[in-house]
Design a protein around this nucleic acid. Sequence first.
RNA 1: GGCUGGAUGGCAGAAUGGCUAUGCAGCGGAUUGCAAAUCCGUGGAUCUCGGUUCGACUCCGGGUCCAGCCUCCA
Length: 464
Amino acid sequence: MLQIYNSLSGKKEQFIPIEPGKVKMYVCGMTVYDYCHIGHARVLVVFDVINRYLRKLYGDENVTYVRNITDIDDKIIARAIENGEDIGTLTQRFIDAMHEDADALGVMRPDIEPRATEHMDNIINMIQTLIDKGMAYQGDNGDVYYQVSQFKDYGKLSKKNLEDLQSGSRVEVEQAKRDPADFVLWKMAKPGEPFWESPWGQGRPGWHIECSAMSKQCLGEHFDIHGGGLDLKFPHHENEIAQSEGCSGHKFVNYWIHNGFVRVDDEKMSKSLGNFFIIRDVLKNYAPEVIRYFILNSHYRSPLNYSDENLDRAKASLSTLYQSLLDIEPADAPLDENSDYAKRFFQAMDDDFNTPKAISVLFDMSHELNRLKNSDKAQAQKLAAQIKHLAHILGLLEKDPQAFLQSGAGEGGLSDDEINDLIAQRAQAKADKNWAESDRIRDVLVAADILLEDTPEGTRWRRK
RNA sequence: GGCUGGAUGGCAGAAUGGCUAUGCAGCGGAUUGCAAAUCCGUGGAUCUCGGUUCGACUCCGGGUCCAGCCUCCA
């Protein structure tokens, strides 16, 4: 039975879908004005695995995964002006880049990927409903605000109350607001800014209302899972609840899932701190699955410390798994869900997506596979197939083992041909029992981060 | 100031009221021309102080330290 830690209640709860057998999940995606960094990679990968696992449990056709794109907001406008670039061109450029990065990381595309600018009617309707219900008002400056005091449950997700918020407020209070905690639903356009027509004048939506409108449109007023990074819990998700429940008058989301931060030197990786690493830069030095392994080797709610050392370690660990799959053709067999390994794997995943524990099962399988390879080829092939099936749920071990182990040719490094050439020379030296020469060649390769393994079938190589 | 969450071996990182996590690194052995890979074996941990208990790393309370949120942020 799947248990999910629900940020709303602060405990693990049994997952029961609203509509039996069907799951609806919405995850806050990117605001597209820059390249995605490793923090974004974590959201992409974590919810990709949750999506994969839900599909495994409920069937592909019974899971609807929505991940939105925010393609209009202040930062986008600012960046477009800064670049002297048209907003549409800017956002499309970074949407394409995001897709490239996500695809590279083996992240499955969501079923629906709504964009804020394509949901303007829904956004405006929702704001109008809130005004009609007396939960929103237009300020003197023309902006429309949500009146937080009208929503009695405000703060239930982030466990904050209005008094605490006000006393700790670090923001300058906008004069037009009736209460400092009120937040903007519709913002008037300044001269030169992009705008949409609305009953309140030309303007654009606030960030929070976009997600309320898009999730309602794609999944309805009440759905199962809403996810995102921990930093969205407040105010973004809190405000979504206020808007959506204020509008519908009933519960918005049953399970809230928040993933932890990526840290650098024990500090949150973020754009404001400037300590972020762009996915595409990291991909120059590390294979995509190494990044996935690195992310999934910690529980999704724990902090994740980014460092080259940790990525190197991830690579070494993943290589060990791949190593066991070398020289073995996995049997053409489906996943045996009754095997002890599969049961342990599913048990781990059922326990709030405990991927580190699930990975440890893969290692146990890998060790048995190594033993089996020399004793029982047929059994080994069956086991290899099982490993691949389970790893697939995590999006790992999807590559050809040899290709993975030999990947990573950096600039200035030896080419595959040069390596094979040196190995041939060394084979001759070995045949001549000229150990000094064969060791010299091996040292040359090691210096270039090429590791050799002599096997009965010949010499094999991989990149460190 | 208010509110969250966390502190596990050299490092990364799970679990658990008494029983091997796992990985990387280390050590011993097998194997190898020597290595590597692999196999077999092995050392090493639960921030601190109290309490509950036959027994706590695990539950409770105090403390210390760390991170996050209260502004945009995945």
